[in-house]
Amino acid sequence: MKSAVVVFPGTNRDRDMVRALEGASGQSPALVWHKHSEIPKVDLIVLPGGFAHGDYLRAGAMAARSPVMREVVARAESGVPVLGVCNGFQALTEAGLLPGALLRNADLRFVCRTVTLRVENTQTLFTGRFAAGETFDTPVAHMDGNYFIDDEGHRRIAGNDQIAFRYADGAAAGPANPNGALDDIAGVFNETKTVLGLMPHPEDATDPLHGGTDGRKLFDGIVEALS
């Protein structure tokens, strides 16, 4: 599987993501600078975490208007799978590739800890390795992860199986939902399930010495689907 990782000024989880992709696919992803308007021909485009453009204005708002994003949108519309994690998820909602928005955490504090996720749809290229209803542990690290969507949108994404992950009870300390997200939503797909955004960091759960290995199933599943 060939992949590209988009780097914005302020992106800071690019290394974590590169390592996870290398571990799963055996190939180094191409790094694409935000001022570039071209992306190499790849099977997967990834927007990693961080604080693109300092998260000034709104998290992901300026990243969504970077030159490279026109190409990301075009590729996504042509069916190329796109994964956005944390700040990348925020940018994908700002760019209109994913429904909903990420608001400030309900307690107004940054949160970095392990959470438990329940996989809500296993019939996608991203989640094929998971069993229906399976839960897994992964870290979160964000200030603006409080997922919101209006009632009509909520009904639509729920009805169309676009909810990818929900926060769930598990071994992790603290309340299951770390940020007040509507309906405990941690990640969503686009209508065709080719674009996935999620707040947690599965790339930081691919190493037994670091954050555990539960996140590997996501990356292994993607590689399996796209190779």
């Binding site: 800071n12 290394r15 974590d16 504090r109 949160v111 970095c112 300390a173 960091h201 790339e203 930081d204």
Partner: peptide, 17 residues
């Protein structure tokens, strides 16, 4: 001190053991 250090990203860079 959990209330404090959960507000710090202690995992970024992927090397925290």
């Amino acid at each position: 001190r959990r209330w404090i250090w959960e507000q710090y990203d202690h995992l970024v860079m992927g090397d925290t053991v």
